[in-house]
């Protein structure tokens, strides 16, 4: 799951190399307004909906955290977003 996340981030951090546990917000690599793009990317790429308690910035700070969120949500069988989703 990490490869597509790394690829997506690479398009937005202007050639900077990051480790999977680097906090992309704390390092100033992206603005906080990038959060929505991250949420939409994960939902579309892994076909689940981010909702409820998962709407926590801690889930989006690092490649590891995003992959863990996607893995947790997909394996929990959380289906595709419902009709009112952000897609």
């Amino acid at each position: 799951m990490k490869d597509p996340i790394r690829s997506f981030l690479a398009q937005h951090i202007k050639g900077r190399t990051i480790q999977d546990d680097d906090d992309i917000f704390a390092l100033g690599l992206v603005s906080s307004l990038f959060t929505m793009q991250l949420v939409l990317f994960l939902e579309q790429e892994f076909d689940f909906e981010v909702s409820g308690d998962d709407l926590d910035i801690a889930n989006f700070r690092t490649v590891n955290a995003m992959a863990a969120l996607a893995e947790r949500s997909v394996s929990a069988g959380q289906g595709p977003a419902e009709e009112f989703s952000s897609r």
């Binding site: 917000f25 906080s32 307004l33 959060t35 949420v39 910035i57």
Partner: peptide, 8 residues
Amino acid sequence: LNQRMMEL
């Protein structure tokens, strides 16, 4: 989403 998740 930004305001709420970043607790701005």
